[in-house]
Design a protein around this nucleic acid. Structure first.
Lengths: 192, 192
DNA sequence: ATGGGCATGTAAGCGGTTACATGATTAT
DNA sequence: ATAATCATGTAACCGCTTACATGCCCAT
């Protein structure tokens, strides 16, 4: 259900076709926020099937016609219901940050690796996160000054998130270094 | 693929059956880190099918027999390959934090709500996050002092994550309040 | 001619979520 | 009696990812 409501949200402002929905999201949040085609078009079909949006075909000289979608009254109601409802669906498991985070899952087993190997992985990740952070900071600056403050806050969330990850990774680097430094490492039964 | 490697990781230490894998995770990370049964058992079956783990049935007096799984040599190799590989699978989209975050997606459309309504939603979320944070802090303290520092770092990640969210929510509250307070809100002729 | 932007989709596979289904033992 | 813990699974649904498939227009 996640992506559907964002689509409805974009259609709250004006009717649009699939491709322009993508563009709107890119422009009003961040160029990083991309929407998968294989997700977008089936989602539009589902929304139409439920009667929340309506299609109108706009003929184009060039072959692929535009499908302009507009919100129906039930669609608008449904969107507002979702927006107002307190029961947010996220974090069914409070540790959702763990289960969809490959790197964090690896971290839990780093003791099976040599400290040097941990260090190089952490440094690589650090670079990745830093690059991502820089992109987000740039896209926040690029947002027009008068832009919806809530949309700025969404990008700001991303920035805070990446900063948090950066600081955590630095700590992790220290952690791996200390372990190498001289602490006995204790354990570690069996290895083949 | 995500959950599979964590299962293999637990089996690196010792053979175990499904239920005890759950318990190990709960105990060595946080009681919050729960594993869905409908995810665990099919995952074990998949891993067995790929030859990464082997089953041995342990008869019990009481009806449900234990299925003790042990890592096979290919399984161990596969786990280490994953652990050493730099190509972490996460963040195929750098804004993954957006697409699976119901609340954040709502935030992008809060301008459709009255400030008071925004405020109450934010305050509710704030409570939820604070509670989750307290739980995580408690579970970090509960981890034995000599525990694997990397596992402590995993829980620490969760703590930093929730703290970040708390601070961001406070900022969001200010944002909604100011908007109500008297600032003109500028904009907003919708663009097409 | 090559690549990027515009424009729309389908198919296969994988895996996560929820609900259903069972049943013994132990502690309160 | 009742609930929690131990123990294992299946079925249906839903949706995300990746790859495939097409084809025009415009700028370099």
């Amino acid at each position: 259900m996640s992506i559907s409501y964002t689509i409805l949200g974009v259609l709250m402002d004006a009717p649009a076709h699939g491709y322009s929905i993508k563009k709107t999201l890119l422009e009003s949040f961040s160029p990083q926020l991309d929407l998968n085609d294989g997700q977008l078009y089936p989602a539009l079909a589902r929304l139409e099937q439920r009667g929340w949006i309506e299609k109108e075909v706009v003929e184009q000289r060039s072959s692929p016609n535009k499908h302009r979608y507009r919100l129906t009254p039930p669609g608008r109601r449904e969107f507002l219901r979702w927006l107002e409802s307190a029961e947010t669906q996220d974090a069914p498991a409070p540790l959702d940050f763990f289960w969809r985070n490959d790197f964090l899952q690896k971290t839990g087993f780093f003791r099976h690796l040599e400290p040097g190997s941990v260090g190089s992985q952490v440094r690589e990740k650090l670079g990745e996160v830093s690059r991502c952070l820089a992109d987000l900071e740039r896209s926040l600056e690029a947002l027009p000054g008068g832009a919806d403050p809530y949309r700025r806050m969404v990008v700001d969330y991303g920035i805070r998130y990446q900063r948090m990850r950066r600081e955590w990774l630095k700590e992790l680097l220290v952690c791996s270094g200390e372990t190498a430094g001289g602490r006995p490492r204790a354990l570690a039964g069996q290895a083949t």
